[in-house]
């Protein structure tokens, strides 16, 4: 007559969902816009405009944000009591519009990103090579980048063009002397 009640598919679906969630890697990330400044060496054949940068923190596991026993902000010791969790990775992502002010077409350029702390001191310097950009004289091209960071205590970034390769093969390099702000 009335047999035993059959369990619905809900527990199976729930278990599958949890398994998928735990198995997924790098499922969440957090992005924070950064203060950006641009600097130009004398004689640079490229001008920068509409520069943006942001700090991207990518979490290794999707549960990292809401683990009950851990803190996600305001604590230096993030992972000491959260066994089995990998630390998140930091990267700086950005874009810039580069205008060729030289008489020759540009084939490639190197963009240096100086990561500065809150006290105007460089903590890390990254160089990104933009190959095969092909910017004609007077033309503007948008370049983007995303580079991993080692430093966490960054406040702002400075974007500088440090090398340019022209279509004829000649290369312009920024001078080796230090670059300063204000004066």
């Amino acid at each position: 007559m009335n047999g035993p009640r059959r369990r619905g598919p809900q527990p199976v679906v729930l278990l599958t969902g949890i398994a998928l969630l735990l198995g997924s890697a790098a499922a969440s990330a957090r992005e924070r816009p950064l203060k950006v400044s641009t600097h130009t060496y004398p004689g640079t054949p490229v001008t920068l405009s509409r520069v943006k940068a942001s700090l991207v923190e990518t979490f290794a596991t999707s549960t990292q944000l809401w683990t009950p026993d851990g803190k996600t902000k305001g604590s230096r010791v993030r992972y000491a009591n959260r066994t089995g969790l990998s630390p998140s990775t930091l990267a700086v992502a950005g874009e810039a519009h580069c205008t060729n002010t030289a008489r020759q077409a540009i084939a490639a350029m190197a963009v240096t990103i100086a990561v500065l702390d809150a006290f105007h001191q460089p903590v890390e310097v990254l160089t990104v090579q933009q190959a095969d950009v092909m910017v004609s004289p007077g033309q503007t091209k948008r370049v983007t980048w995303e580079e991993p960071l080692r430093a966490e205590n960054l406040f702002e970034v400075a974007v500088i063009i440090t090398k340019v390769r022209f279509a004829d093969g000649s290369v312009w390099s920024a001078p080796q002397e230090e670059l300063i702000d204000i004066f």
Binding site: A114, L116, Q121, P122, E177, E178
Partner: peptide
């Protein structure tokens, strides 16, 4: 420059 508080990129001392 020996000491300058607003250095953006390190390098040879600026004349």
């Amino acid at each position: 420059l020996v000491v300058y508080p607003y250095q953006v990129l390190p390098g040879r001392p600026k004349v």
